[in-house]
């Protein structure tokens, strides 16, 4: 068995898709915080998106499976909570992939106080119009809100800044 370098491990992880949004990888999502290798052993440090995200365990299993398939013998996944994941860690090129997939990419996350009634204008990922309205604070997953475009009338999801 040949040793795996950290670079090779990163390349493997760049092909592991997010189970909910398969157009972006776990590395583009920004949840892989560190990779350490020692011979055929690989340790991957992962930061969960939401505490209650049901995809977390599936993502960890996919990461381990992909690395094993690539030749890693001993795969360890370590969960790291701090610093907490933010949508600002999503790779710039992935934002465009999200938009093409029909999900409006998140605005920059501003930590700290936000006025309760602040509802930002989100551009429709399909027609680009900013005449949109929020239908619900929560979409199909906790990380997304549900919007509708008043111009093309299509509903769409918005990846909420976190």
């Amino acid at each position: 068995m040949t040793a795996m370098t950290a670079e090779q491990a990163w390349q493997v992880l760049a092909r592991v898709a997010d189970p909910e949004i398969p157009v972006i990888s776990v590395t583009e999502l920004g949840i892989v915080r560190d990779v350490r290798t020692d011979g055929a052993a690989v340790e991957v440090v992962v930061t969960p998106t939401y505490s209650g995200c049901p995809a977390t365990e599936l993502i960890e299993a996919s990461i381990a499976a992909a690395l094993r398939e690539a030749g890693a013998r001993d795969v360890r996944i370590r969960t790291q909570l701090a610093p907490a994941w933010t949508t600002d860690w999503i790779a710039p090129e992935a934002l465009e992939k999200l938009r093409r997939y029909g999900i409006a990419p998140p605005a920059a996350a501003r930590d700290g106080e936000q006025p309760l009634a602040f509802v930002p204008r989100i551009a429709c990922p399909l027609c680009g119009s900013r005449d949109t309205e929020r239908l619900s604070q929560f979409g199909a997953t906790a990380c997304k809100a549900l919007y509708r475009c008043r111009d093309c009338r299509e509903p769409f999801e918005y990846f909420k800044p976190l």
Partner: peptide
């Protein structure tokens, strides 16, 4: 660490319930 993570989620719960 748990609090730092949860604070972000609670902000959305609060906004939803306040609305």
């Amino acid at each position: 660490a748990i609090a730092g993570k949860s604070a972000k989620e609670t902000r959305y719960h609060l906004r939803h319930a306040a609305d």
